[in-house]
Design a protein around this nucleic acid. Sequence first.
DNA 1: GAAATAGTGTCTATAAGACAATATTGA
DNA 2: TCAATATTGTCTTATAGACACTATTTC
Lengths: 253, 253
Amino acid sequence: MSTLLCVTVDNFLTDEDRAFLAGYDPRAFPPVAVTVDLVVLTVRESELCALLIRRGEPPQRGRWALPGGFVGPDETLDEAAARELAEETGIRPGAHLEQLATFGDPGRDPRMRVVSVAYLALVPDLPMPIAGTDASEAHYRPVAELGGNGAGLAFDHGRILAEGVERARAKLEYTGLATTFLDEPFTVGDLRRVYETVWGVPLHAANFRRKVLSTPGFVEPTGEKLATGRGWAELYRRGTTAHLHPAIPRPPS
Amino acid sequence: MSTLLCVTVDNFLTDEDRAFLAGYDPRAFPPVAVTVDLVVLTVRESELCALLIRRGEPPQRGRWALPGGFVGPDETLDEAAARELAEETGIRPGAHLEQLATFGDPGRDPRMRVVSVAYLALVPDLPMPIAGTDASEAHYRPVAELGGNGAGLAFDHGRILAEGVERARAKLEYTGLATTFLDEPFTVGDLRRVYETVWGVPLHAANFRRKVLSTPGFVEPTGEKLATGRGWAELYRRGTTAHLHPAIPRPPS
DNA sequence: GAAATAGTGTCTATAAGACAATATTGA
DNA sequence: TCAATATTGTCTTATAGACACTATTTC
């Protein structure tokens, strides 16, 4: 194992400088790396899927992990997350990206103290143009196949994924975010299938339709109809309302 | 300004070790400090108040700031937050403490890159036994007096405080957390005043009472009555239900 | 007695949830 | 034809919100 030395060059400091740095001596705390990890969720083929990358490097080599990387010295956390999302999935305008939570247990990464700020992204199901900055595999994998709390993921990524999934499930209730899983235009049936997939429960189609269309700003009609599947269906775009009043009730279990 | 040198002692490394550390050379990213900042909220005299500390050290000296400190090398983030809370307010069993969000904009602290994990604590209004690890002033100050987004606070603490207040307001809707603002036992009127204070709106007393008592697990009756104020009032303890179904409706505006 | 608070009863509007029924298209 | 989906109509139940009223204590 290698050793890290952090040395403060504090010759020629004034008393004011010393006071200024009081409590900020780097020797007082070990080096810490700050990263962003992404929980990128999408809905494909009636399954809620997360973007995972198979690790090609030693710690946890071969296991699936969340995409992520270091926060650059001049980046905000949001910018670092947006950059990683663009690198991993290609830029998707309209994709939703929000901070999820921060994970910093000592020992969560065997190499050093790593504090990871997790972000949640909700993206439509598009053919994946992963550029693969490193040559590692990247796939959307159904979260249901990953077992309880994403067991089997590298590091503590199973827990991070579980929190991201729960956040997404909760936010569908009281925001219009479900539309960010869909390409425009979409039908009310498409939107209902997003809810059913993310929540894992069947919804009453007639009541769901009434609820969505009676919520101002949730979806906007395009005036066109799509004659695919059985029957025809009216087409909609995303609305502008972020908060739903009242919420879409989430059935128990 | 002093200079920080971080040197990796990488003589005698095997190829495996070098691969292990690939991408983790500390020279690849500047030193980062990780801290926890606390948004400690309480309700006193019909005002929502936050615990603030007047800075006694140069950057932003004399301005009000959130309590906080460094994350120790062997602490989890939660442990660091709990330690800081105990140091600043004295240990309060039953106090609610949850991670709020992480703030890491470059330049948010003029000394160095500081990534701060903010926590939200909801505590009852008790005589404050602040031990004051440093000799700085600490006070509960009404958030309404701090102006929009806590203008005037040091660093970006105004924004952090605003997010904490908004989180608290939102959580009163769908959790039983309002009870953590109260000492036990309490009356339904006490609980209603917590809602009215945090939300800043008057609530219908009769409907509120019905709502609270009809929500299983929100509060538990003690069987005793308190003959203070006008009339008598039944006394309750905190219930065990974390999630309210259905939520306590929050009036608009 | 007046004022303030606790507590009960009741009514209305709204929304959720369930069921029925029709229309349209693909197999 | 049948099966599947979209869409509309209607009914029941639960709940929010409003108002009226009583009881009890302090001033």
